[in-house]
Amino acid sequence: MPSLYEFANPVRFERWARPAIPWLVGATTLLLVAGLYYALFNSPADYQQGDSVRIMYVHVPAAWMALFCYSLIAVSSAVGFIWKHPLADVAAKETAPIGAAFTFLALFTGSIWGKPMWGAWWAWDARLTSVLILFFLYLGYMAIWRTFEDKTRAARLAAILAMVGFVNIPIIKFSVDWWNSLHQPASVFRAGGPTIHSSMLPPLFLMAGAYMTFFAAALLQSMRNELMARRLARIDSGEKKTAASLVES
């Protein structure tokens, strides 16, 4: 009975997700305050880049989150596709806009960081270009969810696309690196970013932690919203139509 399965799990989800959200929000605030303090005041300026290196603390964790979120979408999609777990589909769907926002943040801050380095807002740096393509992958994935009204079908198709996209990420990444090495000299980000001094690590990890807890809180809240909206839709459609069955005539 798929319907029982569908009801039981979201109920249990609601029971632990709701109290978890305030804790996650609190953790995000603490980590963010600490991270920003270290990033802005308590870490050295780069000897070449000066204070603009501090953009890294916002940029690099955002790029990490961009990839992490897409991976999570792919894994949730596989779980939803293979085991038909309804929560997995919802998790994949609701991760996408948050992941896309992190991706956008990475692109935006990367561009700001690039301006003093390259003298241009965009210099077709290999890493940034890969992140841009990842952003397009997010757009395609979200477009599927937006265009199909039938949520079960949308879930299946979006899952297929997410898995195909995930398999292609290494290939795309490789092709962009290849393209960049043919056309461009090495740039700021290429050699693993500017050499990381150990004093740069605490703010980096604090910020990454803040992003992570923020992501978890945002994901749980959007999943709750989505589950609630679906329950309403189900009640609504149940009132409109009763299924037909056969009678002799």
């Binding site: 079960t152 079908r153 189900r234 299924a243 037909a244 069955s245």
Partner: peptide, 16 residues
């Protein structure tokens, strides 16, 4: 046999 379309059950308990 029961069939749904777009999350709405269309026919229910069909035996033939």
């Amino acid at each position: 046999v029961g069939v749904s379309r777009g999350g709405v059950r269309i026919v229910n308990d069909i035996s033939l």
